[in-house]
Computed example of a mutant assay.
Amino acid sequence: MQILSPRQVKTDEAVRLGVESGWYAIKVSGTFVSGPHESEADCRRKIDEIHPPLTKKR
């Protein structure tokens, strides 16, 4: 399973990378997986859709 985390790409960096500014779900390697999202909360929801949190078995 890959670990994804939210990352904000601001306007100056977005121009340099050739992407829209916003929040992106990224791999540890820095590869963009999903985005741009309007907010960090939206990005985290998408990360949870891609990889649902583990639930403990009883």
Rank of each mutant, 00 (worst) to 15 (best):
K10P: 00
L54V: 06
V9T: 15
P53E: 11
S29A: 11
E49N: 05
E40C: 10
K46I: 06
R45G: 10
K10I: 06
K10G: 02
I50C: 04
G18F: 09
G18P: 14
P6Q: 10
E38S: 14
S39L: 00
I26Y: 10
S39M: 06
E38Q: 13
G30M: 11
G22Q: 06
E49I: 00
D48P: 03
W23T: 13
R16F: 10
T55S: 09
I50S: 03
K10A: 06
P36C: 08
A41Q: 12
K57S: 05
I26S: 14
H37V: 08
G35H: 10
I26T: 15
G35V: 08
E13L: 11
L4R: 04
C43S: 08
K27H: 14
E20T: 09
H51N: 06
K57E: 04
P6M: 04
Q2C: 03
V15S: 12
R58E: 01
P52M: 05
Q8N: 15
I50N: 02
Y24N: 06
T55R: 04
L17S: 11
H51G: 04
R44S: 06
R16Y: 11
E49T: 11
K27W: 06
V33M: 15
P53L: 08
K46G: 01
A25W: 07
T11V: 10
G18D: 11
C43N: 04
S5I: 00
P52L: 01
R58I: 00
E13S: 03
I3T: 07
R44G: 00
E38F: 07
C43H: 07
H37Q: 09
R44M: 14
L17G: 06
K57N: 03
R45F: 01
E13Q: 09
K56N: 02
I50K: 11
R16Q: 14
W23Q: 10
S39G: 07
G22D: 12
F32Y: 13
L54E: 04
A41Y: 11
E40D: 11
S21D: 07
K46T: 05
T11C: 05
G30P: 14
K46W: 00
P6H: 07
I3Y: 03
R45Y: 03
S29E: 14
S21Y: 02
G22H: 12
F32H: 14
D12T: 08
L4E: 04
D12M: 00
V9I: 15
P6T: 05
P6D: 07
P52V: 01
E20S: 06
S39V: 02
V33G: 15
V9K: 10
S5M: 02
R58Y: 04
Q8F: 06
H37Y: 13
G35W: 05
S29V: 01
V19G: 08
P6I: 01
R16L: 12
E20M: 05
H37G: 01
H51Y: 11
W23E: 08
S34P: 14
E20I: 00
G18C: 07
K57Q: 03
A14K: 06
R7P: 12
T31D: 15
V28S: 14
G18M: 09
V28M: 12
L54N: 00
D48I: 02
V19S: 07
E49C: 04
E40P: 05
K57M: 02
K46Y: 02
V33I: 15
D42G: 07
K10S: 09
D42Y: 00
E20F: 09
I3V: 08
Q2M: 07
F32Q: 15
K10E: 13
E13Y: 05
